[in-house]
Design a protein around this nucleic acid. Structure first.
Lengths: 339, 339
DNA sequence: TTGTATGCGTTATCAC
DNA sequence: GTGATAACGCATACAA
């Protein structure tokens, strides 16, 4: 017998398959005596329940699906790790998929997850095709949205206010004395977090009486960030401070500055967003906005599981972000353009 | 009808469920006319095959499982991403699990993967309980081992020679003029890659007539690496060069040097291992040994799939590593201890 | 080429 | 408290 099945255990223990199943799933509904008998057989045969059979019969997979943009950004890798830990401790498996920041790819991945019968889903951001939400609703699959917050109850969100956070960054930079500020944002198409950060930053500029921010969008990669920063720093009217959409772009900007022989923060200040491991390692260490990535990962797991288990739609959770000063932001040397 | 099933499609198209199944799985064995008819019904009903039912009937899950130590090290995150891409293009789903460098945890995770019926498995390194290999063999599950190479045919390995690579690092450092060298290795318990690197480094020292390397083991994290480096750099007989087990430890070492007011590479040289994104961003940029992480990820996917599809055990693959000079390694200022 | 019927491993609804 | 037995959704051997 290659792989013992329920039937083998039942025969070995001299009971029915139903009883074995009960011992495994609701041991309370079986007599002490038979329970021990069955457990002994299970051990002796080295029986392991077959996930597929169980899933088909119970319509439950003990699996949660998650779709993140990419694992190449450590902020997501860490959040996913926290999510996985949380689920693992509840005996639930996490199925991870990546969208590569592509709406189409995300939709494909979601269909895969759904067809695999995941019990719940964790997503990042809310900017996606209505099809997806229709599908989720039709199948009654609980899902939560990380990385953003919202007032309305359209989705269960677990995250922080990107707009407020970016707004705050501009104020910090302004308070440091900067007036000629540029922003290296992530690609906003299909990325509401990036878009909200731009909105928040622009709003702050307006409030502060600054001219509209020069916003350059770039992919969330080191190389792309560096390239964008190079053109920004070598162009006319060089900004005294560059606000970056995340730490990776900020790292690219610092690299670009080094290449252009500009000193950070003396010649140009740089701020990040996320507070990844990178931030403290960069030279100079990065002043950045810390986001609660581990808390989001853990909470997403707890919330989606409680939804599944209780059937009650959970409340939204909003976390604060935290400004972390390190050294890449300093007053500009020549405050020559106070408008 | 919440979720259409095969039967619904069959009824809608006026054929049997067997025919619908054939259209989906072997369209060549069905007439053009009925095929089109069925495909139309599939589209109209928005039918998606139920993975669970399919898996139970076919004993195939189109799923590959992978267990990596952690996703928090970008080298694994990137490799896994490459693996996932490769599998995705073949319509195969990747189930990712992490062991946190724990043998027990890895064994647990493996049982989960097996019970979920994965068609194949991708592992990192070969140092694990024999139980695991027995289980895999008993179930006849193809598996490949990444991140190492081997002459024998005990496992299908896809990787590089850790010992040779570390051996080479020592030679490079020696050639730069260093004689007082220390090594900050990863924890070797349960990690054969880390252990092999130590062996290779020690062998090189012996060959070169150097005293046995002062090897300090540390967890593969920034903080742990920094802490270990601090004690190493502040102790007596400070080494002129520190060889690190990976780039993360090297980053910690550079941070420790900065804290100790030691200049890298003038006061102390530092080398890494992996060549992650980190390497080029550090200050100074890290001289390190590049490993073929993306190629390993891609190859692992291709090899395990070809094994599954063809039934033929594939050959081992060995890649070269590449020495990347950046700036953290330089001749020592005072060659005062040539033994 | 197509249909019928059976089985995949488990859970769950009944009776007993 | 326990045992038959019918699902669960699909693939496939066998018949036609």
């Amino acid at each position: 017998m290659q792989t013992p099945k329920l039937e083998d255990v039942a025969r070995h223990a001299g009971v029915s398959t139903a009883t074995v199943s009960r011992v495994l799933n609701s041991p309370l509904r079986v007599s002490e005596r038979t329970r021990l008998k069955v457990e002994k057989s299970v051990a002796e045969l080295g029986y392991t329940p077959n996930f597929i059979g169980r899933a088909l019969a119970s319509n439950r997979t003990n699996t949660i699906g998650a779709i993140i943009p990419t694992m190449e950004n450590s902020i997501f890798a860490h959040a996913i790790q926290a999510l996985e830990e949380t689920l693992f401790s509840q005996g639930v498996t996490l199925l991870i998929a990546t969208s590569q920041y592509s709406k189409q790819r995300e939709e494909d991945q979601l269909r895969v997850l759904v067809s695999r019968g995941v019990d719940g889903i964790v997503l990042v951001g809310a900017d996606r095709s209505q099809n997806i939400y229709d599908l989720l609703r039709a199948r009654a699959i609980p899902y939560v949205v990380m990385w953003m917050s919202s007032q309305d109850k359209q989705h269960v969100t677990i995250g922080f206010n990107n707009e407020v956070a970016a707004h705050s960054v501009v104020h910090r930079v302004y308070d440091a004395g900067h007036r000629r500020i540029a922003m290296l944002a992530g690609i906003t198409e299909g990325n509401d977090r990036a878009a909200q950060r731009v909105v928040g930053a622009q709003r702050a500029c307006q409030e502060l009486g600054l001219p509209p921010l020069n916003v350059v969008e770039t992919a969330y990669t080191l190389e792309a960030g560096k390239k964008a920063a190079l053109s920004l720093l070598s162009g006319p009217d060089r900004p005294t401070a560059v606000i970056c959409g995340n730490d990776v772009i900020a790292a690219g900007t610092i690299a670009a500055a080094a290449e252009t022989e500009l000193n950070v923060p003396r010649d140009v200040s740089v701020t990040g967003f996320d507070d990844t491991d990178l931030a403290s390692i960069l030279s100079p260490p990065l002043t950045t906005m810390r986001i609660p990535h581990l808390r989001m990962g853990r909470a997403a797991g707890e919330v989606v599981m409680s939804w599944i288990n209780s059937g009650e739609r959970p409340e939204n959770i909003e976390y604060e972000t935290k400004w972390v000063e390190r050294g890449s932001l300093a007053p500009p040397v020549n405050v020559d353009t106070v408008s």
